[in-house]
Design a protein around this nucleic acid. Sequence first.
DNA 1: CTGGAATCGGACCAGCGACTCCGCTTAATA
DNA 2: TATTAAGCGGAGTCGCTGGTCCGATTCCAG
Lengths: 190, 190
Amino acid sequence: MSGATPRPLRADAARNRARLLDAATEVFTTRGVDVPTEEIARAAGVGVGTLFRHFPTKEALLEAVVVRRLETITDRTARLAAEHPPAEAFHACFRLVVEQSAGKQEFTRALAEAGVDVHASLRESSGLMRAQLAGLLTAAQQAGAVRPDLGLPELVALLVGTGAATEQLAADPAARERVFEVVLTGLRPH
Amino acid sequence: MSGATPRPLRADAARNRARLLDAATEVFTTRGVDVPTEEIARAAGVGVGTLFRHFPTKEALLEAVVVRRLETITDRTARLAAEHPPAEAFHACFRLVVEQSAGKQEFTRALAEAGVDVHASLRESSGLMRAQLAGLLTAAQQAGAVRPDLGLPELVALLVGTGAATEQLAADPAARERVFEVVLTGLRPH
DNA sequence: CTGGAATCGGACCAGCGACTCCGCTTAATA
DNA sequence: TATTAAGCGGAGTCGCTGGTCCGATTCCAG
């Protein structure tokens, strides 16, 4: 197995890599995954050659973006889970995940479509995320705050769905809030 | 203004047109809107030339497919609405629209992205659909079956969202049912 | 049956976008 | 500061896909 980075990566190279990641996140999110790679390179202030040296493939770049975002969300979720009682934590995380995933369905879908089996790195961080969610869910259920008949798959589906729903209401925060209320109310035991 | 069809369309032409529409519906739904036009032509058993004579553009074909599906759904919705009391009708239609819209978000999104303003035909049938839904919603609200603070936009968003959610659970009907219950429960007044 | 208009099919064309290549630039080090 | 290898940029390549064109084929009126 290969250990850490073989070489420490030169200063400018590291900077460019970071810029590319940021630019790609921005551009993919706002304009969709179909933007030409050149657009991303331009947004990052580098040439396409640089882009492809850092990420061998457009798909690899997309994957890197998704992984980073997943990791961020997982971290924040963990913090919320640690600092609040189960019911509150569950609700806060639900909102967090939905809000932070805006436009992300497209990402993962594109990934899933492109290569049949996603890369190891994605599977790993997505696994961590799922583990977090599973813990949150069972804790909330034991606290009597969530219907006991729901499993992780249903929770994930509802997260994705609520994301899609709120995306439709981007312009109207009040309506978005009402949608949240509908879903969160429906999640309570009845 | 132009009246009805200028010419009655030859027999084989009509057949081919229908085949194209069916094949396109099938292929777009199962493999996404990015399939090459040639695939659709092959699935329909015709050449690409025929395809482009009937539909001047790939986008036009997609639009025709979407319009047809919207019309079907609208018809069924109308029938349900006429034959059941408000609350039942609302629930039944909610399920119907979600189930029949499977994979359709992608369609409309692709359309919206492609040309900025969708074609008149689509706007028309989509308007009819929205009118149906609006009627259904207010009736159900007056019957006390649905939260009174929801508007048409929220309903549409929830339809789209529930569609996205159930699509994630394609393999597990029981889980899908639980998702429906969550959303429909959340829609009731509290 | 048959003439000819409508329709068909698929080779062909053009534009686009992912990725490569290589001469030039620049960070790191002695 | 000089040396050198890592890194950069972007013009160019190649394959793919939407859309066109026209000779071959098919329907149908007389």
